[in-house]
Structures are given as C-alpha cells and as structure tokens.
C-alpha cells in the first residue's frame, strides 16, 4: 500500500516535511498524492530566496490528469529547489520522499501545533480518501 514514513510530518493538503539536522526543512508531496495524480509531466518550482507563508501555494505539480498547487506546510524562505524535477518530474512518482523532494526551506515562525499531522494521523486521512 501507500508509503507513509514515520519520521516525517504531513499537511492535510498532502505535503510532507522533513526536519533536517542543520535546522532546515525539506518539503515534497506524499506517496498518496503522487498516486492520486498519476504520472507527473511538469513541475513549477519557486525562486530561491522567496519567502513563503504557511499554507501559501508555492509550486505546481502537473500530471497527465491535472495541475495541482503545492502549499507550504510551514512558513519559511526557499534555500534550494530540486532542479532535477525540470527534466525528470517522474522522480516524484518514483521516490516521493527522496529524490522527488521539491524545496528546502529555512523555517520561519514555528507552525501552529495542530496544523501538521504525524504519520499515523496522515495515514488515516489518506485512507479516508
């Protein structure tokens, strides 16, 4: 079934957040989301240096089926974007939690506690549809 790694936090809008040892965070979309979208064909990423509000649309993932906004699960400044997605958007299908990461952020204000889900809560949300 769909993969929901236990060490990540998740937004209700299907993004994941990985807190890294250096204090930055990595963001991508969940295995559930990539399954629902189908084969990705284009990914629009933000510019490095852009400041993001929590919940702000900052990227677009377009699949054979539809274009979808990706929302910032935490506030922060874009430090790095995954340039490989321009040529190989299918990395998100193949490895959504690894090579398919979308941006790395310097987090701003800490997220409101209730906003992010742990793996168990997210798995339940994804299961419910």
């Amino acid at each position: 079934m769909e993969n929901v790694p236990a060490d990540l936090k998740y937004a209700r809008s299907h993004e994941w957040v990985r807190e890294r040892a250096d204090g930055t965070v990595e963001v991508g979309i969940s295995d559930h989301a990539q399954h629902a979208l189908g084969d990705l064909v284009f990914v629009e990423v933000p510019s490095v240096g852009r400041g993001l509000q929590q919940g702000e649309a900052f990227a677009v993932v377009e699949s054979v089926k539809a274009a979808s906004d990706v929302y910032a699960p935490v506030a922060g400044t874009v430090l790095e974007v995954n340039e490989a997605l321009a040529r190989t958007p299918e990395l998100i299908n193949q490895d959504p939690y690894g090579a398919g990461w979308i941006v790395r952020l310097k987090p701003g204000a800490p997220p409101a506690a209730a906003e992010l889900l742990d793996a168990a809560a997210y798995a339940a949300l994804a299961e419910a549809g």
Partner: peptide, 8 residues
Amino acid sequence: PVNYGSQI
C-alpha cells in the same frame, strides 16, 4: 482501469 502503474 485508468492505469496499472504508469500511464506514460
């Protein structure tokens, strides 16, 4: 069936 993994 819409796909069996990858439509492409």
